[in-house]
């Protein structure tokens, strides 16, 4: 079972996917259409690249403050949360109260991002 399959089968996860940092491909599993998954991967990829830039600049300010390289991010909406770790994303239903478990899963199953974005 691939990481994405396993992630998508976790309680509370509606859909999971991964994208190439170059933007030329993506894959997904779960309750999304191909077009929505493509849109989601474009959005997640853009935010990840922007965050990498911002965090690298924070570090450039002369302080290795524990932030760089960025490992991931999440955005909590009214009913859903989007979580991203490296180039892997998932949509979580807030009603499931599984955010901690999913973030733990991502932390344990995805190697530290060294910042190369390849």
């Amino acid at each position: 079972m691939s990481l994405i399959d396993e992630l998508a089968s976790q309680p509370g996860v509606m859909a999971a996917g991964e994208y190439a940092y170059r933007g030329d491909r993506f894959s997904y599993v779960g309750q999304l259409t191909e077009e929505l998954a493509r849109m989601a991967s474009i959005m997640c990829r853009t935010t990840s690249m922007a965050l990498h830039m911002q965090v690298d600049m924070l570090k450039e300010m002369g302080r290795d403050c524990g932030c760089a390289p960025a490992q991931g991010w999440s955005v909590k909406g009214k009913d859903y949360t989007v979580c991203v770790r490296a180039n892997v994303f998932c949509f979580i239903d807030n009603k499931s109260n599984e955010l901690n478990n999913i973030m733990k899963f991502l932390n344990e199953h995805i190697a530290s991002d060294e910042g190369a974005m390849v």
Binding site: T46, M49, M53
Partner: peptide
Amino acid sequence: KLAKFAHDYKRMVQGNADQLAM
């Protein structure tokens, strides 16, 4: 550093333009 910033910023703008088009 200016080159690195410009490269990163360009990619960010490209991403945001892609989203605007989308």
